[in-house]
Design a protein around this nucleic acid. Structure first.
Lengths: 344, 344
DNA sequence: CTGTTAGCGCATTCAC
DNA sequence: GTGAATGCGCTAACAG
């Protein structure tokens, strides 16, 4: 039975419930000897505190929420990994919600979290057009930290990656490897990340004295089905010698499009894709990827949240920008060192 | 402020707290008119119920826990995706814990969940040697459902995939495609899944009149670093013409080993890997994979849990076996249809 | 159909 | 240092 509560512990120890409660919380006004006795008995009786009762009284849930578009996405699952580790270190619990890019669902989640169920929220927002968002209602009530998919129209703590820079670097990398016509495959292009990636591409072209040709920049769809054809059409009509896939899901369509057309990678077309798949190099030894520090981002976001929860100094409304990594794989077989085992 | 509670609502409405509570919970003993009034006022006053108070009284947390070895693993993240969707449909919240294959951590999580924090647990157990497990202490207190990594020494509801059959099929597939010497790369081999995969391989060889040669079955390590070399040694010393990678992480080492040795896939060596990576086909058009129905498994496990929570009929101690899928990719470019968009 | 009473388990006043 | 009382917000049990 799980009926062991503070009262029973107290009775067993000939102490009052208040004393036991204090001893368990390691209060300074309890003698060391008593504390030891209480702890010992708690262990022996297999006492487990009731979090609901504790929350109700203390207004601390020991729980944080993570809201992301999709869990089964290598970036977000790595970020959640990082968050979970930090939470665990603080003896906190982690609630997970996925919005599937649906803003209304996101709002519903947030609303339901305004009830004291959690002490803070980490969010990577849904890409749905920025309709009604009620983030402003959250901030006075709970710490809210944005990571990766940040919300622009609000002053808050935000953690992103240098999308502009990495896209710029990627484009430059292709130029330096001889590409003259570099195409860009857009993903979700109304987010800050999407915009920054496009800007980096365009600026890198400009700085390389290559004329930007908007026929080389195409929108892609949600479905895996159509994208290979979109890329094929692009390859046929524009004959680019380089491709930048601005999101992970576009790497595979590029690969298949090239194969179907008999184009060799990287001899005929060089490809760089944004991707957090650890096995991305598998695609082709020549596939260069831009990898976001998802795990680190999760840890960082959670770290800041716990600083706030522990009332430590935190720079308000800061925007932290973490570096992405351009991973170039040589066809010699020695692949650039992947990031070290993350949980080491 | 979030100070609106049932009492204030009641005062505003000239009703008792109990009536308001019942109205909000849509109790059948409240008149439609009153319900409407209450709901209206609740909305107007922006009332959000306090879950801790509710839990404390009702012993229902509206929360379930998911315990997995790693979140950032395509199989588990897809499973969590499925779980989250079902939980969402039931207006439940989902707590996530990762054990990193550490049994003690797993025990600690479970122990902390015996406090009323959750109404049920879905678990895929850590692979650490089956030391002290306290699953038996859980069952009388909470519904506990095992998925994928099930615990053998307990009577409980378990959901797995047909590891034996899929490994058997994979081996047969290689034989039918001309392989005579098929090597097997072991992952974690003391789990039921690991054992079943090995058994399927061995039985398929036997049924194909191929002598099992244990030099063709090698253990692999945790680190990406060493595995390519292990595979290389195997390829050099045994010269197999087929490889079965029993876990996802082994596909890449196989690929690199072949490349480093100048072996062509699939001409010189055919490879089949267990893998849940949607982009696995990316490796090589000829890579055949065995894909587990992770999403479906998550949905199924959660579905059964909610049946239990809703006191519906559930066959006790059932073991459900879902089918894995052998996905053969043709080098013609038409890849076998991937599973349909999961959240459709 | 609605109100009154009581108490879930704990942490925080105050006393002493 | 410790104990006795009080109430966090809600819902179950019992009235009526």
């Amino acid at each position: 039975m799980d009926k062991v509560n503070i009262k029973k512990l107290a009775a067993e120890l000939n102490l009052s419930a208040a004393t036991v409660s204090r001893a368990l919380r390691d209060s300074h006004e309890i003698g060391a000897a008593t504390k030891a006795r209480v702890m010992e008995m708690a262990r022996k009786m297999n006492y487990v505190p009731n979090p609901s009762a504790s929350n109700l009284r203390s207004h601390k849930s020991k729980t944080i929420a993570v809201i992301v578009p999709e869990i089964a996405n290598s970036f977000f699952s790595q970020a959640i990994n990082g968050i979970e580790e930090i939470a665990r270190a603080h003896n906190y619990h982690v609630l997970i919600y996925q919005t599937h890019e649906n803003v209304e669902l996101e709002n519903a989640f947030i609303r339901s979290l305004l009830s004291g169920r959690v002490d803070g929220i980490l969010i990577s927002i849904a890409s749905g057009l920025n309709g009604e968002r009620n983030f402003k209602d959250v901030l006075p009530v709970l710490p809210l930290i944005f990571f990766d998919r940040v919300y622009e129209d609000i002053e808050a703590i935000k953690i992103t990656t240098n999308d502009y820079q990495s896209s710029y670097t990627a484009t430059k990398h292709l130029v330096e490897n001889g590409c003259k016509k570099i195409a860009y495959l857009k993903g979700i292009d109304h987010t800050p990340a999407g915009k920054n990636r496009i800007a980096g591409y365009i600026d890198a072209l400009r700085d390389s004295d290559i004329l930007f040709d908007d026929r080389l920049m195409i929108a892609t769809g949600d479905e895996q089905q159509e994208n290979p054809d979109l890329v094929k059409n692009l390859l046929l009509s524009q004959k680019p010698d380089g491709l930048i896939a601005s999101i992970e899901d576009l790497a595979l369509p590029c690969y298949y499009a090239c194969r179907d057309l008999g184009l060799k990678i990287p001899e005929d077309v060089k490809i760089i894709s944004f991707s957090n798949l650890k096995t991305a190099g598998i695609l082709n030894p020549s596939l260069t990827t831009i990898t976001q520090p998802a795990f680190e981002m999760g840890r960082t976001a959670a770290g800041i949240l716990f600083k706030i929860l522990n009332r430590k100094e935190v720079e308000p409304n800061q925007t932290l920008v973490l570096d992405s990594e351009l991973v170039v794989r040589e066809s010699t077989g020695s692949l650039t060192q992947p990031s070290p085992k993350e949980r080491a």
